[in-house]
Amino acid sequence: MSQKQSDVAILIPAYNEETTLSDLIDRLRSELPNCGIIVMDDGSVDQTAEVARSAGAVVLRLPFNLGIGAAMQTGYRYAKRKGYRIAVQVDGDGQHPPEEIHRLIEPIRQGADLVIGCRFLGRGDFKSPLMRRLGMLFFSFTISTLVGRRFHDTTSGFRAAGRSVIEYYSDHYPSDYPEPEAILLLCRAGFDVREVPAKIVERGGGHSSITAIRGVYYLFKVFLAIAMGTLRPVRRPGRENE
């Protein structure tokens, strides 16, 4: 930790990811040697926190399981307090390749507020089950319609955020299945949100948190949240939530 720290923080939400985490952290280290690596351990019951800590990551251990949204927000709060200029969201299961992170960071350095690594813009050949594809299409269509701009991959969790978004997300970040809603929030608050093609690979371990029954709840919750989000007054940067 004696060498100069970079201004980039990698935020990794993890729930029982002990098998993939140490490998991921090693790869991140060799790809971005000086970046801060922060693992938000969302109340795991396995050795996630210990594995991440011995691999050299900062571990924010939540006392109980809060869900991906709240875990992610914890990371943003940490990044805000530590003064990081860029935060990159990377899944703990290794489906977001560290080599691709530079592609996300680059537009932020040039002034974008949020950059989404998109599966469907040409790089890599991401295959997923039909139902998931339909759900993804549905959200992308809904968000695109509401925002008035085409988004291709609103469920991708591979994202980079600039300082203003780090501050904004510290105060306002959706819970449960946050990805589509998190885009909507930013667009409505007037942030510059962009998509870049990114390679996303098969899961290295663990499995999707979205099972068949949860899928229905997922669709309903996100749709309701998006609908209510458009009816709600815009949350401008700088106002603390309760």
Partner: peptide, 26 residues
Amino acid sequence: RLLAQEVALLKEALREIQEGMGEEID
């Protein structure tokens, strides 16, 4: 949820202090 997040952040801050390396990045 807010409390749990604060607990996680405070525990990390405490750990940092205990390890005597509270250096901030610029």
